[in-house]
Design a protein around this nucleic acid. Structure first.
Lengths: 234, 234
DNA sequence: ATTCGATTCGTACACTGTAAGTGTGTGGTG
DNA sequence: CACCACACACTTACAGTGTACGAATCGAAT
């Protein structure tokens, strides 16, 4: 339409993989991962779909990149703190980041191409445990147990169909009307006596399971004899 | 088997929602959820794509139905056993079912339309805890902690890019070559000293976290005073 | 044989990712 | 200044997706 040659004052920032990833994350945050299409992403960047392919091999590379950006947003505490505090803080930060990018949880694990941020993160977790006297076996156990809990919780949280107390009430009500109480009595009890209570927030459940896990690891550690970490094998 | 008045040899089983769901699960088991398309599903059933829509409103309804079928495959122990044994068995059964249907884990929670099998399952878990003296609050905590762990673990397990020891070795080797050891020393250590060891099986990690969680719940229960369950409120 | 409801199918459309080839603005050279 | 090379953006095209709409076919009751 515009036949003129760049009378526009815009400095015309060139596209880049970073800008593509940032825009993709914004789009996914707003409309969910299924609403992220190459054409919409291009439009968001003021560009045509195929232009993206100069900066990115294919859509999968975008998804992998998004995951790594999200991983990079997780705060890894630094300084001289004990492992339990360190693990608690990174767990809380992880959940927070994942709740800001709800689409990410099911992708964090399902993308098999690890990026640098993910590797850094994992290396930090493992290193912190090793330096705190965890044996290799216990480190593997701890890593698995903690991350399973964190991602599992985020997964549950992501998919809860309600965000506000009113929504909770409406959904529970609909549930109770559709399904006779006497068929699922305990579910009904929990819904009415707990979930519908004012001030209920599923997110609060995170702390309980987190402390349970951390306490369990602490106990497991004290029961095993620590071994000094052996860095740089080979 | 029974030959009707049909001159045709085939008895021509009519389509049904159940048959559609079963075929969909087979297809997803074989090629992953992304390979499940309406046309392939129809072909699998010897039918055209649009014929499916008589038995099913849309693809989402198929996905919801698949999740509920999978939930129905989980064994819920019956009889007079204590809560810990009951929870352990259902956790193990859940993981087993999820590993048979790898696509299911990320869908179990992301489908917001609960089916009867899911409701039955949840009701059973909550009821077992309540009848064992868990308070409503602790039941909610326990439910959240256990399920987060189970699904989180399944999520991790689903996405591990290897199934055999050889694959593990190959991937670790590739990792060590691509990324300098001194950048991720602890990750390298764990890989070489633990994951590459013969007999390693990530699935074995499940038990550790499960017992850790169950022990934690047991401790939490013994520290709180039990309340009798109040069934059928309102 | 006719009718009718229950199923199944054919066609069409908007939308997806992306292969292949075509422009085009910009900075470096003469 | 003109020119060019090339990094970058665009055009077109294609196979595959879910599904709306209406027509065709089946099985059984009349």
């Amino acid at each position: 339409m515009s036949t003129q040659t760049r009378t526009n004052a815009e400095p015309r920032i060139p596209l880049s993989k970073d800008r593509v990833l940032q825009a993709a994350i914004v789009l996914a945050d707003e409309g969910g991962i299924e609403s992220l299409t190459m054409r919409k992403l291009a439009k968001e960047l003021g560009v045509e779909a195929m232009s993206l392919y100069y900066h990115v091999a294919n859509k999968d590379e975008i998804l992998d990149g998004m995951v790594d950006v999200v991983f990079g947003e997780i705060d890894l505490p630094s300084g001289e703190i004990n492992w339990k505090t360190a693990m608690r803080e990174r767990a809380i930060s992880t959940r927070k980041v994942l709740s800001l990018h709800p689409w990410a949880t099911s992708m964090m694990q399902s993308r098999t191409n690890p990026g640098p941020a993910l590797l850094r993160h994992h290396n930090w977790v493992i290193g912190t445990l090793r330096e705190s006297g965890f044996s290799i076996e216990l480190t593997a156990h701890a890593f698995s147990a903690m991350d399973a809990y964190i991602y599992g919780f985020s997964l549950q949280e992501e998919t809860l169909p309600f965000d506000t107390a009113e929504e909770v009430a409406a959904i529970v009500k609909a549930f109770l009307e559709h399904f006779p109480v006497d068929e699922y009595p305990y579910l009904a009890e929990l819904s009415v006596e707990h979930i519908m209570k004012p001030g209920y927030d599923y997110g609060d459940e995170f702390d309980f399971g987190l402390e349970l896990t951390l306490d369990g690891l602490e106990r497991a550690q004290s029961e095993s004899e620590p071994t000094t970490p052996k860095v740089l094998p080979i």
